[in-house]
């Protein structure tokens, strides 16, 4: 079993929902990322999602795009991100880490080299936003050969056939996002989400994470009641942005938000 599967199995046994915070690696500086990852775990994160900065993050909203821009000022590369995961693993052997990013930096490194380096660094899952399974057989094979879980997005417009083919390629969990498309947008329509989760669960046993519109303890709790995992991105990255000049303040503010979410979800 992969680290991600283990984590979901353990949570399921306790009747709890996974909390998955997202931060962009290298935002605002390279040296801030590993300490922030540890803070997230200490405050109750079950899985970490680490964004790999890209110059043209087409599927992200302005908050995540600005995080990429901040990280790229210091040329945070895919190599650097893998180095951060390796450093994190020195003192945390248990918390799964998922990389989320775009294909081009992986293309440049080469699929095999990337998969090898990611496995060695201790990466557990890879979500590549802009490579659907139709184009992704080679990357998929490279990841699978190293027991890295390929994570895929599902959208409200995903047809039942597509959900079937995407979940057939996926392992670990799947990640349901809003149609209002870009990260950080839209308001929470719990009933619509509940209906779609039903459709997804009809074709897959994989845990389903939901990742939009979760901005505070109350929304995390509400979503936690219907999803297997709650992914929090823009709300956290906004705090990083607000306190960008002060790493301690970042950890304090982000830790506080994650802690409140954790508490609310466990009480729910």
């Amino acid at each position: 079993m992969s680290r991600i599967e283990n984590r979901f199995a353990a949570l399921r046994a306790q009747g709890r929902t996974a909390l998955i915070p997202f931060i962009t690696a290298g935002d605002p500086r390279k040296e801030d990322t590993v300490p922030l990852m540890h803070t997230l775990v200490a405050r109750g994160a079950d899985i970490l999602e680490l964004g790999v900065p890209f110059s043209d993050p087409m599927a992200d909203g302005p908050v995540i795009q600005r995080a990429s821009e901040r990280a790229l000022v210091h040329h945070t590369s895919l190599h650097d991100v893998l180095e951060m995961v390796r450093a994190f693993r020195e003192t945390d052997a248990d918390t799964p880490v998922v990389l989320m990013g775009y294909l081009n930096p992986i293309e440049v490194m080469g699929y095999e080299d990337f998969a090898e380096a990611a496995a060695e660094a201790g990466v557990d899952g890879v979500l590549t936003v802009d490579i659907p399974p139709e184009e992704g057989a080679e990357l998929l094979a490279a990841l699978r050969a190293r027991h890295i879980d390929p994570i895929y997005l599902l959208a409200p417009t995903s047809t039942p056939e597509r959900i079937r083919s995407l979940t057939a390629s996926a392992s670990g969990f799947v990640y349901y996002v809003s149609l209002k498309g870009v990260t950080g947008a839209g308001n929470l329509d719990l009933e619509a989400v509940r209906a779609k989760l039903g459709e997804i669960r009809a074709v897959t046993e994989l845990p389903v994470g939901v990742g939009f519109g979760i901005k505070d303890a109350a929304t995390a709790r509400a979503m936690g009641e219907i999803a297997d995992a709650v992914v929090v991105g823009s709300a956290i990255v906004s705090l990083v942005e607000r306190h960008a000049s002060d790493p301690e303040a970042i950890r304090e503010a982000v830790g506080c938000l994650v802690g409140e979410m954790r508490q609310a979800m466990d009480a729910g």
């Binding site: 087409m58 599927a59 294909l103 936003v129 802009d130 490579i131 659907p132 139709e134 184009e135 895929y152 997005l153 599902l154 959208a155 417009t157 995903s158 047809t159 597509r162 995407l166 996002v177 149609l179 498309g181």
Partner: peptide, 10 residues
């Protein structure tokens, strides 16, 4: 090819 996020596939 088609290299886009799932949100754009439909």
């Amino acid at each position: 090819g088609v290299f886009v996020a799932e949100t754009l596939m439909a």
